[in-house]
Each structure stands twice: as structure tokens, then as C-alpha cells.
């Protein structure tokens, strides 16, 4: 109805992914001791950007 839901979903996850990933790049590695040494902010941030981008791509491709 009027609004293509894929646009806000895609936008939100791209923004959240950029925030998480950006924080992951610049944060202290010691922060990730509790997540088994994995920089989960960076990797999950990248995953969210890809997911959100996929939704934005779908909304453009299918009008």
C-alpha cells in the first residue's frame, strides 16, 4: 500500500550494518574477548550491509 516495505528494510539494515562495521573497524580488539576473539561487529556489520543492499536492489529491480 503506497510504500514498498523493501525500501525501509533495506535502508535500515544498510545503516545498522555501516554503524556496526564502522565501530568494528575502529574499536579496541580487546573488546572481542567475550565473543571468542572474533570481531563480530565488523563481520556482522558487513553481512547486514549485504542483506540490506539485497533488499534495496530487489525494490529497484521489481519497481
Amino acid at each position: 500500500m503506497g510504500l514498498d516495505i523493501r525500501v525501509p528494510i533495506g535502508l535500515m539494515f544498510v545503516i545498522l550494518g555501516l554503524l556496526l562495521g564502522g565501530f568494528g573497524i575502529f574499536s579496541d580488539p580487546a573488546l572481542y574477548a567475550r565473543s571468542l576473539g572474533v570481531n563480530v561487529n565488523l563481520w556482522w556489520g558487513i553481512a547486514l550491509v549485504v542483506f540490506g543492499g539485497g533488499f534495496l536492489g530487489l525494490s529497484r529491480r521489481r519497481g
Binding site: M1, G2, L3, P8, L11, M12, I15, L16, L19, L20, F23
Partner: peptide, 24 residues
């Protein structure tokens, strides 16, 4: 601040969807 920012982004989208649909 990053945790608050993530929460703020989510709530902004939730309210934004409501506002965008008002005219329909």
C-alpha cells in the same frame, strides 16, 4: 553510544513507517 545509536535508528524507522503510511 553505539548501542544507543542502533536503538535510535530502529525506533526512527518504526515511527517513520507509521508517518509515511498516514496519508494512505
Amino acid at each position: 553510544f553505539i548501542d544507543w545509536l542502533i536503538m535510535a535508528v530502529y525506533f526512527a524507522f518504526v515511527l517513520g513507517i507509521g508517518a509515511a503510511l498516514k496519508r494512505f
